[in-house]
Design a protein around this nucleic acid. Structure first.
Lengths: 166, 166
DNA sequence: ATTTTCTTTCAATACTATTTGAAACTTCCA
DNA sequence: TGGAAGTTTCAAATAGTATTGAAAGAAAAT
């Protein structure tokens, strides 16, 4: 398999992986492209290599910057902006996790908090209280864990645990 | 807030949460409904309470069974099937994680495995090899971790870590 | 064997999300 | 200041996904 083919496969796979995670395909593909590029790319480079429109490229680059997965780079003497991806996979994992926590876990924790202590003595009311309580406990713990865990902790933990278990 | 209102909010929120996770809204809502029901429900119960069609209810109940989140229950003297959700939130988390690992992580690991050792001495080839290698390492570790971690391990770890960090 | 009750399938439809591309905007330079 | 080079916005078009509901299929009862 040659490099070009391999790159295409990687971009496609990362796009599919992203989709399953609620990240849209183009955004994941732009990210993939930047991940495997040695040099920062311009918006035009991204448009050309992925065959996407200017609007699409622009919007997804901006979102990736929001997520701290990509940063703008200025080249001296160049008017245009260039974009470069964070290449440390552990940082990438941490940033993605943080962003998802914020978007998804936090609202759920807030709602479960509200839903505790709904009154009622029927079996349905009891079942409801038990489930919201248990979920609240689990999601709160996860939330705390993610708040305090740094890239280094996660790296240590995953390496240690996966090596032990191999 | 009364019970009915609280139940509706929970179902809606679980549905939204599911969407963000690549689980379709109805499936997540059916799951939510069964999670907070004291007794197993029939297909009709699900249709009525969520205002969804028979086909939709049937398909999502089947998928939930595939994921081991719901089981069929037969009531003696009853012709119809009833459905009951797994109520242990730790098991729920484990089952969901396993299913997603199978659908998403495993194919990625396989691809990255193939993409290692693409030849070439250009900076682009080097960047590609480094990224696929690092990602392969990370995803393989995660995969191993998820393979070997039981519900008990995860429960222990999350409880311990989140309590320490609180 | 026929009817009844319940489950499953699937083509048509409705809905949601993504993408485009042209126009508006901004910034820098002659 | 005018205009060239680049970026951003957003309404419309397209593509992708989920849902419906009627029909077919299965299993049990009569």
């Amino acid at each position: 398999m040659d490099l070009q083919e391999a790159r295409d496969k990687f971009i496609e796979a990362w796009g599919a992986f992203g989709s399953a995670w609620g990240i849209n395909r183009s955004m994941a593909q732009v990210h993939a492209l930047l991940l495997i590029s040695a040099e920062p790319l311009s918006t035009e480079d991204v448009m050309d290599q992925l065959n996407i429109s200017r609007g699409n490229a622009n919007m997804n680059l901006r979102t990736l910057i929001d997520w701290s997965l990509v940063k703008r780079v200025l080249k001296s003497g160049e008017r245009r902006e260039f974009f470069d991806a964070e290449k440390d996979v552990w940082k990438v994992a941490t940033h993605i996790t943080r962003e998802r926590k914020k978007r998804e876990l936090e609202p759920l924790v807030r709602l479960l908090d509200e839903l505790e202590d709904i009154p009622g003595a029927t079996p349905e009311a009891k079942a409801f209280r038990k489930m919201t309580h248990d979920l609240h406990d689990l999601t709160t713990r996860l939330d705390t864990l993610l708040d305090h865990s740094t890239r280094r902790d996660v790296q240590w933990f995953v390496k240690a645990a996966s090596t032990l278990l191999k």
